[in-house]
C-alpha cells in the first residue's frame, strides 16, 4: 500500500543553509490542558523533553510522548525556528518584549514580527514557535531583517 510522505517544515518554506535560522523538527509538540504547578512563563525539564507554561493549567510539551491530561497533538501545526545569529538584534527589531522575559528557564508568549509566538532561549539560542501557516511569512521577515547586518 502506498503511504503518504511527510513534508517537513524546512521543505515547506524552502530553508537553505544561508538562512539566519534553523528549522528543526521536534519529535513531538503537544498542547496540554491539565492542572500543573509550573510557574508562569517558565520552562520545566522532563524525562523526554521540556514543558513551556502557556496559561494557568496549560502548557506546550516539547516531548517525544504526550503527557497526561487533555492533549492535542500539534507536532504538525507548530513551526519551530531556531535563530543562529543576531538574536538580540532580531528580537529588538521584531518585538517589544522586555529583555528580562527571556532569562534562564523563562519563556514568553508575545507578538514577534506582528504575530503571536512563543519565545525562549535554549542552549543559548533563541527559539521561536509560530503557527505553521505563518511559517512562510516569518521566514520572509527573518530573511529580510537579516539583510540589515
Amino acid at each position: 500500500m502506498v503511504e503518504l510522505v511527510l513534508t517537513s517544515l524546512a521543505d515547506q518554506i524552502g530553508w537553505t543553509d544561508s538562512d539566519v535560522f534553523e528549522c528543526p523538527a521536534p519529535t513531538g509538540l503537544f498542547l496540554v490542558s491539565a492542572p500543573n504547578d509550573i510557574a508562569p512563563n517558565s520552562m520545566v525539564e522532563v524525562d523526554d523533553g521540556y514543558l513551556c507554561w502557556l496559561a494557568p493549567g496549560r502548557c506546550l510539551a516539547v516531548t517525544a510522548t504526550p503527557p497526561a491530561g487533555f492533549v492535542s497533538d500539534v507536532t504538525q501545526g507548530s513551526a519551530l525556528f531556531v535563530v543562529r545569529v543576531h538574536a538580540a538584534e532580531l528580537l529588538a527589531m521584531g518585538s517589544a518584549l522586555p529583555a528580562s522575559a527571556l532569562g534562564e528557564g523563562r519563556c514568553a508568549q508575545t507578538l514577534f514580527a506582528g504575530v503571536k509566538t512563543l519565545l525562549y532561549r535554549r542552549a543559548g539560542l533563541l527559539h521561536i514557535h509560530v503557527d505553521r501557516p505563518l511559517a512562510p511569512y516569518l521566514r520572509d521577515w527573518l530573511r529580510q531583517a537579516a539583510t540589515s547586518f
Binding site: 508562569p40 512563563n41 517589544a96 518584549l97 522586555p98 522575559a101 508568549q109 508575545t110 507578538l111
Partner: peptide, 10 residues
C-alpha cells in the same frame, strides 16, 4: 498579573 509589564499591543 502573570507575565509582568508588556506593551499595550499585546
Amino acid at each position: 498579573p502573570w507575565c509582568g509589564p508588556r506593551s499595550e499591543h499585546e
